[in-house]
Simulated scan of single mutants.
Amino acid sequence: MFTPEDEVPAERVVETLEVLLRTPPFVRSPKLARFLRFVVEEELAGRGTTIKAYTIATQALGRGPDFDPSLDPSVRVEAGRLRRALEEVYAQHAEGVEVRVSVPVGGYRPRFGTMEAAPDIAEDAPAPEPGAPPPRAADRPAPAAVGFTPRGQAAVIALLAGILLVLCIDLGLTLSARMGGASAVPRDIAVRGR
Protein backbone atom coordinates (compact mmCIF):
# COMPACT_ATOMS: atom_id res chain seq x y z
CA MET A 1 0.00 0.00 0.00
CA PHE A 2 1.29 3.47 -0.87
CA THR A 3 1.08 6.66 1.09
CA PRO A 4 0.26 9.76 -0.93
CA GLU A 5 3.00 11.39 -2.94
CA ASP A 6 3.06 14.68 -1.00
CA GLU A 7 3.99 12.82 2.20
CA VAL A 8 7.30 11.51 0.84
CA PRO A 9 10.12 13.92 1.73
CA ALA A 10 12.35 14.93 -1.19
CA GLU A 11 15.46 13.74 0.68
CA ARG A 12 14.08 10.21 0.85
CA VAL A 13 13.27 10.29 -2.86
CA VAL A 14 16.83 11.41 -3.65
CA GLU A 15 18.28 8.66 -1.43
CA THR A 16 16.06 6.10 -3.19
CA LEU A 17 17.10 7.42 -6.59
CA GLU A 18 20.76 6.84 -5.75
CA VAL A 19 19.98 3.29 -4.54
CA LEU A 20 17.96 2.56 -7.70
CA LEU A 21 20.78 3.78 -9.94
CA ARG A 22 23.13 1.23 -8.34
CA THR A 23 20.84 -1.74 -9.13
CA PRO A 24 21.64 -4.05 -12.07
CA PRO A 25 19.02 -2.76 -14.56
CA PHE A 26 20.34 0.80 -14.28
CA VAL A 27 24.02 -0.13 -14.06
CA ARG A 28 23.60 -2.11 -17.31
CA SER A 29 21.86 0.80 -19.07
CA PRO A 30 23.30 4.28 -18.59
CA LYS A 31 20.56 5.60 -20.89
CA LEU A 32 17.84 4.36 -18.52
CA ALA A 33 19.78 5.76 -15.57
CA ARG A 34 19.90 9.21 -17.23
CA PHE A 35 16.19 9.00 -18.04
CA LEU A 36 15.27 8.12 -14.45
CA ARG A 37 17.57 10.72 -12.91
CA PHE A 38 16.24 13.44 -15.22
CA VAL A 39 12.53 12.85 -14.59
CA VAL A 40 12.96 12.46 -10.81
CA GLU A 41 15.14 15.57 -10.46
CA GLU A 42 12.82 17.64 -12.65
CA GLU A 43 9.79 16.56 -10.62
CA LEU A 44 11.54 17.36 -7.32
CA ALA A 45 12.62 20.75 -8.67
CA GLY A 46 8.98 21.63 -9.33
CA ARG A 47 9.25 21.37 -13.11
CA GLY A 48 7.15 18.24 -13.46
CA THR A 49 4.79 19.87 -15.97
CA THR A 50 7.70 20.37 -18.38
CA ILE A 51 8.58 16.67 -18.46
CA LYS A 52 7.65 15.80 -22.04
CA ALA A 53 9.11 13.52 -24.70
CA TYR A 54 11.00 16.43 -26.28
CA THR A 55 12.67 17.55 -23.03
CA ILE A 56 13.59 13.98 -22.11
CA ALA A 57 15.06 13.34 -25.56
CA THR A 58 17.06 16.56 -25.74
CA GLN A 59 18.11 16.96 -22.10
CA ALA A 60 18.52 13.37 -20.90
CA LEU A 61 18.99 11.14 -23.92
CA GLY A 62 21.35 13.34 -25.96
CA ARG A 63 19.08 13.97 -28.95
CA GLY A 64 19.39 17.14 -30.98
CA PRO A 65 17.00 20.11 -30.99
CA ASP A 66 15.46 18.78 -34.22
CA PHE A 67 13.98 15.79 -32.33
CA ASP A 68 10.30 15.31 -33.21
CA PRO A 69 8.41 13.03 -30.80
CA SER A 70 5.57 12.61 -33.30
CA LEU A 71 7.99 10.99 -35.77
CA ASP A 72 10.42 9.29 -33.39
CA PRO A 73 8.99 6.89 -30.75
CA SER A 74 12.33 6.41 -28.97
CA VAL A 75 11.26 8.21 -25.78
CA ARG A 76 8.08 6.09 -25.55
CA VAL A 77 10.18 2.96 -26.08
CA GLU A 78 12.68 4.00 -23.41
CA ALA A 79 9.82 4.87 -21.02
CA GLY A 80 8.51 1.32 -21.42
CA ARG A 81 11.98 -0.04 -20.70
CA LEU A 82 12.20 2.26 -17.67
CA ARG A 83 8.90 1.00 -16.28
CA ARG A 84 10.01 -2.63 -16.71
CA ALA A 85 13.38 -1.88 -15.07
CA LEU A 86 11.65 -0.30 -12.08
CA GLU A 87 9.32 -3.31 -11.79
CA GLU A 88 12.35 -5.61 -11.86
CA VAL A 89 14.13 -3.62 -9.17
CA TYR A 90 11.15 -3.63 -6.83
CA ALA A 91 10.54 -7.34 -7.48
CA GLN A 92 14.15 -8.56 -7.15
CA HIS A 93 16.37 -5.90 -5.61
CA ALA A 94 14.11 -3.97 -3.23
CA GLU A 95 16.17 -4.60 -0.07
CA GLY A 96 16.35 -1.32 1.80
CA VAL A 97 14.30 0.62 -0.75
CA GLU A 98 11.49 2.30 1.19
CA VAL A 99 10.28 4.73 -1.47
CA ARG A 100 8.68 3.45 -4.62
CA VAL A 101 9.28 5.46 -7.77
CA SER A 102 6.92 4.81 -10.67
CA VAL A 103 6.30 6.35 -14.07
CA PRO A 104 2.63 5.76 -14.87
CA VAL A 105 1.69 4.78 -18.41
CA GLY A 106 0.44 7.72 -20.46
CA GLY A 107 3.03 10.20 -19.24
CA TYR A 108 6.58 10.65 -18.07
CA ARG A 109 6.12 12.37 -14.70
CA PRO A 110 7.31 10.14 -11.88
CA ARG A 111 5.21 9.38 -8.83
CA PHE A 112 6.57 8.63 -5.38
CA GLY A 113 5.08 6.54 -2.61
CA THR A 114 6.19 4.59 0.40
CA MET A 115 5.51 0.95 0.93
CA GLU A 116 3.94 0.02 4.24
CA ALA A 117 5.37 -3.20 5.56
CA ALA A 118 2.99 -6.12 5.36
CA PRO A 119 3.03 -8.46 8.34
CA ASP A 120 4.88 -11.69 7.75
CA ILE A 121 2.43 -14.58 7.99
CA ALA A 122 5.13 -17.03 9.05
CA GLU A 123 6.11 -14.89 12.04
CA ASP A 124 2.49 -14.70 13.26
CA ALA A 125 1.90 -18.45 13.04
CA PRO A 126 2.39 -20.42 16.26
CA ALA A 127 5.29 -22.85 16.34
CA PRO A 128 4.27 -26.52 16.09
CA GLU A 129 4.57 -28.59 19.22
CA PRO A 130 7.37 -31.18 19.29
CA GLY A 131 6.12 -34.56 18.07
CA ALA A 132 2.94 -33.07 16.56
CA PRO A 133 2.02 -34.15 13.03
CA PRO A 134 2.80 -31.64 10.29
CA PRO A 135 -0.05 -29.29 9.39
CA ARG A 136 -2.41 -30.45 6.65
CA ALA A 137 -2.14 -28.72 3.29
CA ALA A 138 -5.43 -26.93 3.92
CA ASP A 139 -4.02 -25.46 7.16
CA ARG A 140 -0.81 -24.14 5.64
CA PRO A 141 -0.68 -20.63 4.20
CA ALA A 142 -0.91 -20.50 0.43
CA PRO A 143 2.38 -19.86 -1.35
CA ALA A 144 2.88 -16.41 -2.80
CA ALA A 145 1.82 -16.09 -6.41
CA VAL A 146 4.65 -15.79 -8.87
CA GLY A 147 4.10 -13.02 -11.36
CA PHE A 148 5.31 -13.15 -14.93
CA THR A 149 6.14 -10.25 -17.14
CA PRO A 150 4.33 -10.19 -20.49
CA ARG A 151 7.50 -11.54 -22.12
CA GLY A 152 7.64 -14.35 -19.54
CA GLN A 153 3.98 -15.18 -20.13
CA ALA A 154 4.61 -15.38 -23.86
CA ALA A 155 7.59 -17.68 -23.29
CA VAL A 156 5.56 -20.02 -21.08
CA ILE A 157 2.70 -20.11 -23.60
CA ALA A 158 5.15 -20.82 -26.46
CA LEU A 159 6.78 -23.62 -24.43
CA LEU A 160 3.43 -25.22 -23.63
CA ALA A 161 2.30 -24.89 -27.25
CA GLY A 162 5.53 -26.59 -28.39
CA ILE A 163 5.05 -29.45 -25.96
CA LEU A 164 1.45 -29.87 -27.07
CA LEU A 165 2.54 -29.89 -30.72
CA VAL A 166 5.16 -32.58 -30.07
CA LEU A 167 2.61 -34.71 -28.21
CA CYS A 168 0.09 -34.34 -31.05
CA ILE A 169 2.69 -35.33 -33.65
CA ASP A 170 3.74 -38.33 -31.55
CA LEU A 171 0.13 -39.42 -31.12
CA GLY A 172 -0.52 -38.98 -34.84
CA LEU A 173 2.53 -41.04 -35.79
CA THR A 174 1.60 -43.75 -33.31
CA LEU A 175 -1.96 -43.99 -34.63
CA SER A 176 -0.76 -43.89 -38.21
CA ALA A 177 1.66 -46.78 -37.59
CA ARG A 178 -1.04 -48.84 -35.92
CA MET A 179 -3.65 -48.23 -38.58
CA GLY A 180 -1.45 -48.10 -41.67
CA GLY A 181 -0.91 -51.77 -42.43
CA ALA A 182 -0.49 -53.42 -39.08
CA SER A 183 -3.09 -56.13 -38.60
CA ALA A 184 -4.99 -56.53 -35.39
CA VAL A 185 -3.32 -59.92 -34.79
CA PRO A 186 0.46 -60.06 -35.09
CA ARG A 187 1.71 -62.37 -37.88
CA ASP A 188 3.78 -64.67 -35.74
CA ILE A 189 0.80 -65.42 -33.50
CA ALA A 190 -1.46 -66.03 -36.48
CA VAL A 191 1.10 -68.43 -38.06
CA ARG A 192 1.56 -70.44 -34.86
CA GLY A 193 -2.15 -70.81 -34.37
CA ARG A 194 -2.60 -72.80 -37.65
Rank of each mutant, 00 (worst) to 15 (best):
F2G: 03
F2L: 14
F2N: 05
E5S: 15
E5V: 00
A10E: 14
V13G: 04
V13H: 04
V14I: 13
E15N: 04
E18A: 11
V19D: 14
L21G: 07
P24N: 08
P25T: 03
F26A: 02
R28V: 01
P30I: 00
P30L: 08
A33R: 05
F38W: 12
E41C: 09
E43T: 10
E43F: 02
L44I: 01
R47P: 02
T50G: 12
A57F: 05
A60V: 04
F67K: 01
P69H: 00
L71Q: 15
D72F: 13
E78P: 00
G80K: 03
R81D: 06
L82W: 03
R83Y: 09
Y90K: 03
Q92A: 14
E98N: 11
R100L: 13
V101F: 10
P104S: 08
V105R: 14
G106P: 00
P110H: 06
T114E: 15
M115H: 06
P119M: 05
D120G: 01
A122L: 15
A127N: 06
A132F: 08
A132P: 01
P133A: 15
P134T: 07
R136L: 12
R140L: 14
R140C: 14
A142Q: 13
P143L: 05
A144P: 05
A144Y: 04
V146S: 07
F148D: 10
R151Y: 05
G152K: 04
Q153H: 14
A158G: 03
L160Q: 12
A161D: 11
G162R: 04
L164D: 04
L164G: 15
C168N: 08
G181T: 07
G181P: 06
I189E: 13
A190S: 12
A190H: 05
G193M: 07
R194G: 03
